[in-house]
Design a binder for these strands. Structure first.
Lengths: 200, 200
DNA sequence: ATTATCTATAGATCTATAGATAATGC
DNA sequence: ATTATCTATAGATCTATAGATAATGC
């Protein structure tokens, strides 16, 4: 029954990966340890040799979700160096992202859940949200750091809100329109910001 | 033990009101019927004479939350007829709204939860989100209906996203800055939209 | 000998139902 | 007689722990 340390570590990683998906799909309270462990190909009994508690897993799974989301967005931006901002906005505000709830942005899927959690989970969210802003800021074409952080915050807010709204409605046309309206306004916003930056 | 029909109806309303707060605070899965009923001054046993299921209450409590949120925003706008949009933005993107999780916008508190629910809950969210848009649209100073709906969507997206982000972080300064950055960008956006509308 | 995983289970909590109780409404 | 609420409980599920098992690692 015992497996090698190597295999045990792989199992642990699988549990974190699976949890990062299933928590995003069902929320922290919407799925139990039994289902999580079985989705990872293990039984519930193995859980507590790997994690201290469900909260512990929730924290690690959130980290994993952020890592993967930011890696994906950064990769898309690097592949289109002429328009990284437009690329990321298009990817984020896509119907694909709307449908893939288990694989998308953790702020959208778990932001409200995180707001209900203790300071440990929120500290992790805060750190990763700052990374989102650092990723966005250089693409805004603004000179001043203070202003560009504000703009990055507004851009991220619009993306997050548009996706939350898009997912909360049934009608696909309406859902899509939230994404498109968000993208349109972000193009206006970032163009204005870039112009302002260049004038200085 | 039995109470009058009048009192029974009042009790039902209390349960819905209490649930609309507690669901927003803890999420649909984060609080049980026992706690909900006790918060309303009743016992769990009385629940099923008033509601068909927990989902039924979740739907009615969401409706109640939306009603109350939109009423509050509309009232604030009416009290400041010279700048309804600015008033609503300032009220929505306030630290008070951030702290009062049980009393604030249902899209922020329960939007991600709604995305995980069935089409019945989502239909209710969709209907109320359309009302948000109808409320915002006349204040945008745009002539064209199509464009002004897009702008209303972008405005709502920024407000929702800024509040989700603000609540997901510990640091109050950062939380406040998300709200202020959102407001700043919305002022720019709506000014641009109004200008464009007047040019036609 | 150690330990990663398994089966089994404790104890709490969850949604929902059943039957008792006591007040209303006819 | 009807019924709104209560107490009590069924049956499922939840987190967490205990002890058995069998393979690893020394």
């Amino acid at each position: 029954m015992r497996v090698s340390r190597d295999q045990a570590e792989k199992n642990r990683q699988t549990v974190i990966n699976v949890a990062s998906q299933l928590f995003r799909e069902h929320g922290f309270d919407g799925i139990g340890l039994k289902d999580l462990m079985e989705a990872a190909g293990l039984t519930q009994g193995a859980f507590y040799k790997q994690f201290a508690s469900k909260d512990d897993l929730a924290a690690q799974a959130s980290e994993r979700a952020f890592e993967s989301a930011i890696r994906e967005l950064s990769a898309a931006a690097e592949a289109n160096p002429k328009d990284p901002l437009g690329t990321v906005i298009a990817l984020y505000l896509s119907m694909g992202h709307r449908e893939e709830r288990g694989d998308g942005c953790p702020v959208v899927a778990l932001g409200a859940d995180a707001a209900r959690q203790g300071p440990v989970v929120k500290a992790s969210f805060e750190a990763w949200i700052r990374k989102y802003l650092e990723m966005l800021r250089p693409w805004l074409g603004e000179a001043d750091d203070e202003d560009s952080t504000d703009t990055a915050m507004a851009v991220l807010s619009t993306m997050v809100g548009a996706m939350v709204l898009s997912r909360a409605v049934n009608n696909k046309q309406l859902a899509k329109r939230f994404l498109q309206a968000g993208a349109k306004s972000l193009m206006r916003l970032s163009a204005g910001a870039a112009q302002k930056g260049q004038l200085r």
